[in-house]
Design a protein around this nucleic acid. Structure first.
Lengths: 221, 221
DNA sequence: GCAAAAGTGTTTGATATACACCCATGC
DNA sequence: GCATGGGTGTATATCAAACACTTTTGC
């Protein structure tokens, strides 16, 4: 069996919520490429897999190095390995394992930005390097799908949150308003949240109850 | 950036239906390992990724070479890359991209078998090499999930089939009987099948109508 | 006629949606 | 009081499950 000259890399689609046009909207951080191919284009953060780290560790490390983020939720998305992917023409072939992640709104707000790292609203992305546009599309699809049958939305919020905040998260991801009454009932019936007993003070209306997620942390490879 | 000594391989979990204990049951083909590590244990068919082929092509090729099968449906499942995965102790590290596939019942019946290739019922698997038990578990989970919201079950049947046969497929995968009346209504309402107008003759009861799948072939990387 | 599976009809319960309405706070 | 979102109640529609019943063949 002959060995192949294939390089393995890891990239991540990181979702965070940021204000956009007066509303919360789904954003993601991109890094500007500082070498060919696709010099100067925006790309997903990532880097090569090192010999002594797992795929997940590689995703965390490259994320930390390029954006300073430590996502709450990190999950494998898909592996891309078309033959023409490495570069425009020559260069080694790259198999790219893509993860997707969620960071809390407060983390996203604090994240390091600069000339070479920026946050972009998912509905208004610049042209991306490689096939990263397609990858982001897959990640959004996966996020929306998982919103329905899991509790991932909690990963975008702090430990304690109101149901109004949770609803805002869902509305930002789905891109449409949700009925507050029905949303409340669905969430309460799902048993994924528990009231802390405390209420949020200082609002100019009835103080909303605070909830905590009852879901345990994920354990995926 | 240093290159890493990482090998890339592809494996596939192939599902097919075969009679087992008088009923149709989910089976998969395994190959016996002819070298260390895990010599003589059963393992998923697979092999190394070659430099000039896509991941999907590698899956198809290794499948054809080891089992002689050409699955109807082939889809990427997950990529495994823990550091300790390569072998018992030494040896190069392996990143393994796993696909899963469905073959029609008639193909499964004809498939090449022998001392080193055999079909096993999913409920009665022998101990597998590496972490392949875990991988099969994931694949079954994915198959059951996709059964609900896609038309993959059609890939296990010939071009024309009765709703009774389709129901048998679902029952075999889900492991429980389904109400014929309600199953019929759900399938007809889904619009994923169209009657051919023909009926199956030669049965010792009312001749069932034949249907055809209206779903187009998948196009996944 | 009888057995067996195809195919139809109907009842019931669970679940989602729409929307009216009251509650508790800041100003 | 008024505005604002929190929170409750309720009618309606949609859909899934359970199951009785009729149909059409081979024997």
């Amino acid at each position: 069996m002959g060995e192949q000259p294939v390089a393995v890399a890891v990239s991540t689609v990181i979702f965070g919520l940021r204000p956009h046009d007066g509303r919360l909207a789904l954003h993601l951080p991109l890094v500007r490429r500082v070498r060919e191919p696709h010099l100067d284009r925006w790309a997903l953060p990532g880097g090569p897999l090192l010999a002594e780290e797992s795929l997940r560790e590689a995703a965390r490390r490259t994320l930390q190095q390029t954006t300073g983020l430590s996502p709450e939720h990190l999950e494998q998305l898909y592996t891309f390995g078309a033959v023409d992917r490495g570069s425009g023409a020559a260069g080694p072939r790259v198999v790219s394992i893509v993860y997707w992640a969620l960071v809390r709104a407060d983390e996203a707000a604090l994240a390091r930005t600069g000339d070479n790292v920026g946050w972009f609203a998912v509905e208004a992305l610049p042209p991306l390097a490689f096939d990263h546009d397609e990858i982001v599309g897959w990640a959004v699809k996966r996020l929306v799908a998982k919103l329905e049958y899991t509790h991932i939305s909690h990963a975008l919020l702090p430990d304690e949150f109101t149901l109004g905040q949770l609803r805002e998260v869902h509305e930002a991801i789905l891109g449409r308003p949700l009925d507050p009454a029905n949303f409340r009932r669905r969430v309460e019936a799902s048993g994924t949240v528990a009231p802390t007993g405390a209420h949020q003070a200082g609002v100019r209306h009835r103080p909303p109850a605070l909830y905590r997620s009852t879901a345990k942390k994920e354990l995926l490879t």
